[in-house]
Amino acid sequence: MASIFTKIINGEIPCHKIAEDENYFAFLDISPLALGHTLVIPKQEVDYIFDLEDDVLSGLHIFAKKVAKAVEKTMPCKRIGVAVIGIEVPHTHIHLVPLNKIGDLNFANQKLEVSAEQLAEIADKIRKNF
């Protein structure tokens, strides 16, 4: 059965897409730790990041770097935090989270409630900086 992320890639579930190429996809987290919290995934559905082939893993990080630079240009923050948890969805994904202090990257923090309209506006702004 396809993961929720594969369904997003295939357009079966809507998302606020930031960027896409032939191998990778980036979209806003709908339950973000911070405004601009973005998920970056390989299109290839592999559960555990360290099971990716080396070229896919390195390409994922290079793609994530480009996305992070666009998020950083768009969202007021000191830098972009990077996290790979890999527990909640069986599809490799990197979290890019705008940070102003170290505690901003704590997944135990309460998630923000953001409207679909606000997410669409943020995604549009980040895309323009990609």
Rank of each mutant, 00 (worst) to 15 (best):
D54T: 07
A64G: 00
L52R: 05
E53C: 06
P90G: 02
L99V: 01
K65G: 04
V97D: 03
A70L: 12
I85N: 15
G103S: 14
A64M: 01
L105Q: 07
P76D: 04
V84I: 15
E88S: 10
H93P: 05
M75Y: 01
C77N: 07
L60N: 03
F107V: 11
V84A: 12
V82Q: 08
G59R: 12
P98F: 06
V67F: 05
F63Y: 02
I85A: 14
V71A: 12
F107D: 07
N100C: 10
E88F: 09
K69D: 13
P76F: 00
K69N: 12
C77S: 12
P76G: 03
V71F: 09
H61S: 14
S58C: 05
I80S: 06
H61C: 15
G81I: 06
C77M: 10
P90N: 11
V67K: 05
L99Y: 04
L52D: 01
F107S: 10
V71R: 13
N100L: 12
L60F: 03
V71E: 06
P90L: 08
A68C: 06
I94N: 02
C77G: 01
N100P: 04
G86E: 13
A68Y: 02
V89I: 15
V56A: 05
R79H: 14
G81H: 04
E53M: 02
F50Y: 14
A64E: 00
M75T: 04
D51C: 12
A68P: 04
K65R: 15
K78V: 13
A70Y: 09
F63P: 02
I94M: 10
I62Q: 11
E88Y: 09
A83S: 07
G103R: 11
I85W: 09
K101W: 00
D104S: 10
E88K: 12
I94C: 06
I102A: 15
V84L: 11
D51Q: 14
V89N: 01
E72N: 11
A68G: 08
E88Q: 14
H95Q: 05
I80Q: 08
F107N: 09
D104K: 10
A83E: 03
M75S: 03
V84N: 11
F107I: 09
A68L: 07
K101N: 07
L60C: 07
S58P: 00
I62D: 09
L99P: 01
D51L: 13
V89G: 00
G81W: 01
V89Q: 03
K66F: 01
A83I: 05
R79Y: 09
N100Q: 13
T74Q: 12
L99E: 06
V67L: 05
F50M: 11
I62N: 08
A83L: 10
A68N: 07
